[in-house]
Amino acid sequence: MNRTVAGSTKVPEVTLMFWLVKIAATTLGETGGDAVSMSMHLGYLLSTGIFGAVFLVSVLAQMSAAGFKPWLYWTTIVATTTVGTTLADFADRSLGIGYAGGSALLLALLASSLLVWHRTLGTVSIRSITSRSAELFYWLTIMFSQTLGTALGDWTADSAGLGYAGGAMVFSLLLALVLAAYWWSTVSHTILFWTAFILTRPLGAVVGDFLDKPQAAGGLALSRYTASAVLFLFMAACILIFRQRAAKQAH
C-alpha cells in the first residue's frame, strides 16, 4: 500500500549543500568501508554482511518515517556507500570479475532499475518520491549507483592508470559539464540530477583512496579512522548548521 506525504517528499531539496554533503558521504563510504574490511581485517564478505544489515535497517527506518529526517536520510546514504564499497571490492577482487566487468554489470543493473522505475511509475524525478513503491525504487537505484561508483573509481584510478588525483580530476570535470548543461542547455533536469548523483560516487571513491592509500601508491597515507572521523564531522556540521528542507512534491 502506497503512502503519500502531502506537499513534500522524504528526500532533501537539491541545493549546493546537498551536493557537498553527498560528496562527503561517498568519500566517507570509501574510507569507512576500507577501515572495516582492511584496517580491521574483517575482509570484504563479512564487511558487506555487516554494512548490508545496517543498510536494511536504515532503509526500513527511512521508509517508516513520517517525513523528511535529515539525520536518518544521510545515515541511509552513508550506509549505501559503505556497503557499496565492500560489495564492489568483493566482486571485483575476491570473485575476480575485475573492475571493467564489475562496472559493466553494475551499470546494466543501474540502468535497468531506472528503466523499470520509469515504466512502473512514469517518472524517476525525486519530486515524485511520495509513496513506498517510489522509495523502494529510489533506494535500490542508489544502492546500484553507489556500488557502481566504487568499481568505476577503482577502474579509472588503477586499470586506466590515471591514479587517484587523475581520477578525481576526470570526475570533477564531468560534474562541471553536468553543471554547465544544467544552466545552459535544455537537457532534462531529472536526467542531469541522476547523472550528477552517479558521478559523485566515483569521485568520492578516488578521493577516499587518495586520502588513505600508501604514498607509494599515490595516496596521502592518512589513517582510515582519522579520515572517516573528519568526514563525519564535516557532514554533521553541515547538517546542524545549514537547515535542509524536503524536496517539494510534484503536482
Rank of each mutant, 00 (worst) to 15 (best):
2 N>L: 09
13 E>W: 05
18 F>N: 00
27 T>Y: 03
27 T>V: 08
32 G>N: 05
35 A>N: 00
36 V>S: 00
37 S>T: 04
41 H>P: 01
45 L>Y: 00
46 L>W: 04
47 S>V: 10
50 I>D: 03
51 F>V: 15
53 A>T: 15
57 V>M: 06
59 V>S: 05
63 M>E: 08
68 F>E: 02
75 T>G: 15
81 T>C: 00
83 V>W: 04
98 G>M: 14
105 L>C: 08
107 L>Q: 12
128 S>H: 09
131 S>Q: 13
133 S>T: 15
134 A>P: 06
141 T>H: 03
143 M>L: 15
148 L>Y: 00
148 L>S: 01
149 G>N: 13
154 D>Q: 13
158 D>I: 09
162 L>I: 00
164 Y>E: 04
164 Y>C: 05
167 G>R: 06
173 L>P: 12
176 A>M: 13
177 L>T: 08
178 V>Q: 05
179 L>Q: 14
181 A>F: 07
187 V>N: 06
195 T>P: 07
197 F>N: 04
197 F>Y: 13
197 F>W: 13
199 L>S: 00
200 T>N: 10
204 G>P: 10
206 V>Y: 00
210 F>W: 12
212 D>A: 11
213 K>R: 15
215 Q>H: 14
217 A>Q: 14
218 G>K: 06
221 A>E: 08
226 T>G: 13
226 T>C: 08
227 A>V: 06
233 L>Q: 09
234 F>H: 01
236 A>N: 02
240 L>K: 13
240 L>D: 09
245 R>V: 03
251 H>K: 07
